[in-house]
């Protein structure tokens, strides 16, 4: 009896040791201490090293596009915080122009909806949109699956990840999701200050932080710097008349509303707004301080007591920008784990 017990205990210990070893080799998804519970359904897509690696290869795979020229990574560049830096709207296949600025692929595990209009609420179904969009990758999922099945490496990689060589929609999407949810950015100066690591804000940053909390934090909610809501921030209808949220809800009250974007890695992700109309953070702050337009469905937060915009002096604007720059996470944009191999 006693011997049996010891055997069981020994077995358990060795099991722990084994899993520990695997964990050392591959750091799986981990929730930063100051982040909320993630929204992603990990229960149906448990993170493994093999699936993550497959997802990464797929993220950088140009075979996802009709003419094998465009990958996810084409418009979501790591050094640009996984956006298409320098492009107001992105250009896809055959240089066809999209209608929106490519958003950052980071902290997706906490995202309850995707795209500027929030039309998709399940990360596993998100890649279908850019793959099939005629101005992005212009391909069909069955064609992608066919190309991957005929590829010399992918059947083996799918087998390693999922146990058999079968390549289907679910496996393709879940592998991509694995890569995307692992893109966690939580090591900016702001994060280190919050964690009381001893690092301090400069006086400007500290002042900017207080102003931010007072004037910006209700929509750009910490620590993700978005409350995931859809709002009209008074920039006025864009050149292409994009109705934003209303295109997926058909609700008049949602016209020209767009998802509140996160502000993390802001220095790398310009230009700004859904159509990339502002090239600098100074222009963004100036908009909120001076140029908010009284348009249909303007967010009430931007018209308090009948006053348009957020009253901010030039010095206050520059302090807020100083604070926003503490949201940059240089390790995230240079982490080799996320880079194309």
């Amino acid at each position: 009896m006693h011997v049996k017990h010891w055997i069981v205990i020994a077995a358990l210990i060795s099991l722990c040791a084994c899993s520990r070893k695997v964990m050392d080799a591959f750091a799986s998804f981990e929730r930063p201490a100051h982040f909320p519970e993630p929204a992603y359904r990990f229960s149906t897509n448990e993170i493994t090293a093999e699936k993550f690696e497959l997802g990464k290869k797929l993220f950088y795979e140009t075979k996802l596009s009709r003419d094998n020229t465009i990958s996810c990574g084409t418009c979501h560049i790591q050094t640009a915080g996984f956006t298409h830096h320098g492009h107001d709207v992105s250009h896809g296949i055959e240089d066809r122009l999209g209608k929106r600025n490519s958003p950052s692929v980071s902290n997706m595990a906490w995202s309850k909806s995707f795209f500027w209009d929030g039309g998709v609420t399940d990360l596993d179904l998100q890649p279908i949109v850019p793959i099939t969009n005629p101005v992005e990758m212009d391909e069909t999922i069955p064609n992608v699956l066919q190309k991957l099945r005929a590829h010399p490496d992918y059947p083996k990689l799918f087998k390693r990840a999922f146990g058999s060589e079968e390549i289907n929609t679910e496996r393709l999407m879940k592998a991509l999701s694995q890569f995307m949810v692992m893109l966690v950015s939580a090591d900016s100066k702001y994060d280190r200050v919050i964690h009381k690591t001893g690092e301090q804000f400069s006086p400007e940053e500290q002042q900017g932080f207080q102003l931010f909390q007072q004037h910006c934090g209700s929509c750009h909610k910490e620590p993700l710097f978005t409350d995931e809501s859809f709002r009209n921030n008074g920039i006025g209808i864009g050149y292409n008349g994009d109705e934003g949220r209303a295109t997926v809800t058909l609700n008049e009250a949602d016209k020209y509303k767009f998802k509140v974007p996160s502000l993390r890695n802001l220095s790398y992700t310009g230009p700004y707004m859904h159509d990339g109309r502002f090239l600098t953070l100074e222009a963004v702050l100036e908009h909120y301080a001076k140029r908010v337009k009284d348009v249909q469905n303007l967010d009430p937060a931007l018209k308090q007591s009948g006053v348009l915009g957020i009253p901010l002096t030039a010095a206050e604007q520059s302090n807020i920008i100083a604070f926003l720059k503490t949201l940059n996470d240089p390790k995230f944009i240079s982490n080799k784990k996320f880079a194309e191999q």
């Binding site: 149906t44 179904l125 069955p142 679910e170």
Partner: peptide
């Protein structure tokens, strides 16, 4: 329509076909 992909195989596969696909990606 909002279930996990593992429960949406066969005719419910959102991959669909070419023009005869029966799924709108952008509104899921």
């Amino acid at each position: 329509s909002t279930m996990d992909l593992s429960l949406r195989k066969g005719v419910l596969d959102p991959a669909g076909g070419m023009e005869d696909g029966m799924y709108w990606g952008w509104t899921m």
